[in-house]
Amino acid sequence: MGKKICWAIIFLTVALNVVMLQWAIESYLGHEFEKLYQFSIVALLSSFIALIAFLKWRRLEYSQ
């Protein structure tokens, strides 16, 4: 996995998390708690993926 792929993954996770946060707030206000939990789980997984991608990028970036 190259550095550019890491960049792309991180940007995709930002976009996904923005949408998940918006939907989570809408679900919370609409008392749709099942959906809220689903969106939270997706957002947390996305955050974890972003963290992994960042660590990978950092290793590649600073090993040169």
Binding site: T13, V14, N17, L21, I25, L44, S47, F54
Partner: peptide, 18 residues
């Protein structure tokens, strides 16, 4: 990357409160 993680974590308070 920090913003992505922060956005993801920001959904937790809503779930916890629910």
């Amino acid at each position: 990357a920090g913003a992505s993680v922060a956005l993801g974590l920001a959904t937790i308070p809503f779930s916890v409160h629910a």
